[in-house]
Nucleic acid binder design. Structure first.
Lengths: 249, 249
DNA sequence: CCGAGGTATATGGTATACCAGAGCCCTTCG
DNA sequence: CGAAGGGCTCTGGTATACCATATACCTCGG
């Protein structure tokens, strides 16, 4: 009989425990998800959070909640008023315009780098995604759901360019910006011709990537996004609506 | 006798208390200052921090220290290993090159906005600062102190452009990047001709601002900073030196 | 009725005790 | 001698008690 290797001994089949996390990290992720899922721009009242209630809701003590809130405050999602509560932040029009302006800078650099570095397969995948959306699911057919879908696809396109840049820092820095830009979904509802123009812009950017022309890709990406900034500047006054007493959760 | 107004009654002349702060915020500021003042790139060993010692040193409990560390970790200044300690982060060459690349994007947008928006007085002040440094204190005369001075002036120039953009978000986002870029001071020691070229670039950027040419200002700023990225790519291998057991504070 | 003062409550900020686990050192066994 | 196991120490992670203060409400006096 050959020897029995210890390696073949029967063992319990258990997955590795996730030791990379902590309550604070998990609270951060959960709270961020919950906060950014709120339709804060669709209601006049400021939403108010409270550590003790969140603590009860999440089933952990206040300590990890506080750590999570420290981060979320730095990222601009909430602001803390001592002894009064924690409020979910609505970005003003000026702030959103600034975010888009900064996005224009970062995306244009991403497009430049993508034109230099992206693999042919990656660029082809981007082209495929674009064609798929353009042929089968035009925006403005009907209803709100369609435009939400368009908006998601739009963000996905921008995120894909960032990814193609191969620059991790660009991805890190833009992640929260994309989230903050949920504020302007309301604008796109009323501007269906913007979607058609947007698709045209996207296609031209893809062509610049395919041609491996960094300067052109960069310029097109910047102009595309600066156009959005100008649009919000012109139509985004609803963002600066009255701020009233908050709703408590 | 005219009535005595309550407004003129004698009162104690006391300054307002600063209620905008907290131990956590003060610890954050103090720790950030201390950490970024360390010459981490000049020594092989990783520096290790410890909450309890910092708590004793700053004279507050661990709680605000932990909150401060949460932020400093997110900003890339430290990393926490559970039950092992908190280590001051050295950026790798790749990370520094990415930071500079992103800086190129942001500064070029800032230069664009500055050319459109900055007042004549602001642009003249920038010109004055540049002339002052160029005429009286040329770099490379002698010693380390001179180049540090140059490096500070270089950063000040870049920061001034960001400020002239009038975009608060650009200033926020670049603040920590400037700090992280202390890593490359060592490179400039050996490259005195880079300083001369840098001054030439700065002057041309100023001229573009004076001419109110956003596209030119933007392009010059981008090329200037991308040139630095390329330089670090070529000469920054020391950044990826061996990482050894940390020194404990 | 109005204004001032006092009290109670609620909430973020902080201190401290306790927990979990990683690493190191020492002891024991083969 | 080398390997394994146990115990101890140290450190970040967490829970909880306490603190400080802002606000709301009530009472009293003018």
């Amino acid at each position: 009989m050959p020897e029995v290797s210890a390696r073949t001994a029967p063992t319990l089949d258990v997955p590795r425990l996730d030791t990379s996390t902590s309550f604070a990290k998990e609270a951060y992720a959960a709270l961020k998800r919950a906060i950014t899922a709120m339709d804060i721009y669709g209601q006049a009242q400021e939403i108010r959070l409270d550590e003790r209630r969140l603590s009860e809701g999440l089933g952990v003590s206040r300590t990890p909640i506080r750590e999570a809130m420290t981060l979320l405050e730095q990222e601009g999602f909430v602001r803390t008023r001592p002894r009064r509560g924690i409020y979910v932040v609505k970005k003003t029009k000026r702030e959103i315009v600034e975010i888009i302006t900064v996005m224009a800078a970062l995306e244009s650099m991403a497009a430049r780098l993508a034109a230099e570095r992206a693999s042919d397969a990656d660029v082809a995948e981007l082209r495929r995604l674009m064609d798929e959306f353009r042929c089968g699911n035009g925006p403005g057919d009907n209803g709100r759901a369609r435009l939400d879908e368009y908006s998601d696809a739009n963000i996905a396109f921008h995120q894909a360019i960032i990814k193609l840049s191969g620059c991790a820092l660009l991805a890190d820095m833009t992640e929260n910006m994309f989230i903050h830009m949920r504020a302007i979904r309301r604008i796109t509802i009323h501007q269906e011709n913007r979607a058609a123009r947007s698709i045209t812009d996207h296609l031209r950017i893809i062509e610049a990537l395919e041609c491996r022309d960094p300067e052109l890709a960069e310029r097109l990406a910047r102009e595309h996004t600066l156009g959005l900034a100008a649009h919000v500047e012109a139509h985004g006054d609803f963002l600066d609506g009255t701020r009233e007493q908050g709703t408590e959760t």
